[in-house]
Design a protein around this nucleic acid. Structure first.
Lengths: 147, 147
DNA sequence: TAACATTAGTTTCATAAGAAACTAATTGCA
DNA sequence: TGCAATTAGTTTCTTATGAAACTAATGTTA
């Protein structure tokens, strides 16, 4: 029998959204004003830090961001000298992006902020609990993708 | 030792945001166009469906939404006749909101959509896994709140 | 009881974000 | 070849969102 009552506080999608927003906000507070970076900008930088020399489109694939958001973030990051763009000569639509020296420095500054936050979130998790959570979370992701 | 490498795909805040956005989007697709309801509007309705006769401010507390978002959603829902407002006579700043008849009908239509989605997400979870996930998730919430 | 502080809710203003249309380059295929 | 379809990325337009200022009512305190 289907339960016909909806309790927001127990409703998984709602809880996910609550937690996710809070976490993103808290982390962003750690770098937004200090480096005047927006969240989409930081995401693009994170993608390039992890895998340099990829195109804007590959950033889209990698981060699941909207391509307009990527385009705008790239523009701003270029203006601010945090990334560099090199046009490909075999396909002149494409260009390949990398962190600039100053961008890489910022990236290195932010990583510990991000990782520390993650560690604090998981502070009182045993290794087993981490693994459990990870596995169950992946299962959720797969279920969602299958819809 | 702190790991100095950030892999987006393993980064918990990032994974949460990805999953949460996908789920919200999918569920919203189920009612947005059909009932021309935005997500904040639906959240307000869900709050009132669960606990009728509360003020806008109580909706804010209950849902953790921004008060501007609530104010706007309330305005729209009133215009569309989906909720009703009764001003309190002892404190004329306050008003008390309820779903209208038509609002309640929509609410009843949407609940199964929402619950079905949740069930599908958890379809292949054993009861034990559900309980585990729930507990670990709560722990995350508490850790985040403590920051 | 006259000010000052607080609270509920709204409006304004500036920025963010996404859908759709667009440009420019490349690829596929008749 | 040459023209339709595809792809990369940008721009435009409309709507969403949040911070801050504002209005109106109530509470507090000297």
């Amino acid at each position: 029998m289907t339960n016909k009552t909806l309790l927001l506080k127990d409703f998984l999608p709602y809880r996910l959204s609550l937690l996710s927003n809070k976490i993103s906000r808290t982390i962003a507070d750690g770098y937004e004003e200090r480096f005047s970076l927006t969240l989409p900008e930081w995401r693009v930088m994170a993608a390039l830090g992890e895998e340099p020399n990829i195109s804007a489109n590959q950033v889209v694939e990698k981060t699941a961001m909207d391509k307009v958001a990527v385009s705008r973030a790239v523009k701003k990051l270029l203006e601010d000298g945090r990334i560099e763009r090199q046009f490909s000569q075999d396909d002149r639509r494409r260009s390949v992006l990398t962190l600039s020296e100053s961008g890489a420095a910022i990236y290195q500054d932010i990583i510990p902020i991000a990782l520390t936050h993650e560690q604090r979130l998981l502070a009182n998790f045993s290794d087993e609990e981490k693994a459990q959570f990870d596995a169950l979370f992946d299962k959720l992701m797969q279920n969602q993708s299958a819809l």
